[in-house]
């Protein structure tokens, strides 16, 4: 049995302009000790999916489907019982470490609070645990630094504190929501290293949410690609990078500069993600897809298996697609052309 099992997850937000269908029929699993990368542009539902697992969405959100942790159903759980999983079985770190820590309490206090939320230990023991955790994430002079306030730390250091805090109760799953996006490039690498290090030491499962394919390539075992609230491709990291079977994934890969694409033009996906209010039937990507044909406009494709084991794609043409020729169908980016 998988550690985390998401089945037909649907998330809807009521807003002034209508109901936003932010996550549509998403299903995937996470195994013990694996790193799952979740990629997609902003608004693709990747964060919302994970916030739903944590039970951190606003109360008015409608969540349907099933999220099973170790066989326990999390959807529809009363708020009070959700706190048993949150921070204890599932830890989470966020995008912006500058605002994610409470400015008025010391680091030690905040980590100790997380410890004491789930473990029956004294304050002193909890602070001792906080020091251990800070050492684990590589903060020098941890015993002294527990007395510091968040504003006395740099962005990278604060993200380490966040990681330490999320690890306070040795959770089985760590959800990292764009953990490096708000940081300097040099610091990004250090934070990712810390995550890798922790993953190897504790064998925790990590869900790494990002729009940076480079980060995913380096860390993930498997990748879930999301578009407009739906899962459009899921597979081992090599399958996704070398044998993508969904035009959106191909377009996404074409938009990153890398050594492999040296000498080639960068490609961009024209257009913007569709509105998630009153979505039309058919494939959500059809408006931007170079391979669009009449079936795409009427029938919504679902995730279905392609050749490799565990590789799924939501495209009517998943068996016929040739990544290289599809890539050239996306329009070349102007800047790249000038450079070439």
């Amino acid at each position: 049995m998988a550690l985390l099992e998401v089945n037909n997850l649907n998330v809807r937000f009521p807003t002034e302009d209508g109901v936003v269908h932010a996550v549509r029929d998403v299903s995937f699993t996470v195994d013990r000790g694996e790193v799952l990368g979740v990629v997609g542009e902003s608004g693709s539902g990747k964060s919302v999916t994970n916030l739903a697992m944590m039970g951190l969405l606003p109360r008015s959100t409608r969540i349907d489907g099933s999220i099973k942790y170790n066989g326990d159903e999390l959807v529809g759980l009363p708020r009070k019982r959700q706190t048993k999983y949150r921070g204890n079985e599932l830890g989470m770190i966020f995008q912006d470490p500058m605002t994610s820590l409470n400015p008025v309490y010391t680091i030690g206090w905040q980590i100790a609070e997380a410890v004491r939320a789930h473990q029956d230990v004294s304050k002193k023991e909890a602070v001792g645990r906080a020091v251990e955790l800070l050492e684990l994430v590589g903060i020098p002079q941890a015993a002294k630094r527990v007395e510091s306030y968040p504003h006395e730390f740099s962005g990278g250091m604060r993200q380490r504190v966040m990681i330490a805090m999320s690890m306070a109760n040795s959770p089985q799953v760590l959800i990292a929501d764009e953990p490096t996006t708000a940081l300097d490039v040099t610091v990004q690498a250090q934070i990712l290293e810390t995550l890798v290090d922790i993953q190897q030491r504790t064998n925790i499962a990590i869900i790494l949410i990002t729009h940076d394919l480079g980060v995913v390539a380096g860390m993930a075992d498997r990748v879930l690609v999301m578009y407009a609230g739906a899962a459009v491709e899921l597979g081992a990291v090599d399958d996704i990078f070398y044998r993508p079977r969904m035009p959106y994934t191909i377009g996404l890969l074409g938009a990153i500069p890398s050594e492999a694409s040296d000498g080639q033009k960068l490609r961009q996906i024209k257009g913007a993600t569709p509105s998630l209010i009153n979505m039309k039937p058919g494939c959500a990507f059809s408006a931007r897809c170079p391979l669009v044909f009449d079936r795409c406009l009427t029938e919504t494709p679902v995730l279905e298996a392609v050749d490799e084991p565990g590789h799924l794609s939501a495209c009517h043409l998943r068996h016929e697609i040739d990544p290289v020729s599809v890539r050239s169908l996306f329009s070349p980016e102007v800047i790249a052309e000038v450079d070439a």
Binding site: M54, L56, R86, G87, A117
Partner: peptide, 28 residues
Amino acid sequence: SDYVRTARAKGLKERRVTVQHGVRNALI
């Protein structure tokens, strides 16, 4: 705010989130 979301993510009871993180900061 983000830090209240963090407090919730820690698995604190809603009452503690409201008082220790919400009210405490809102009073300033």
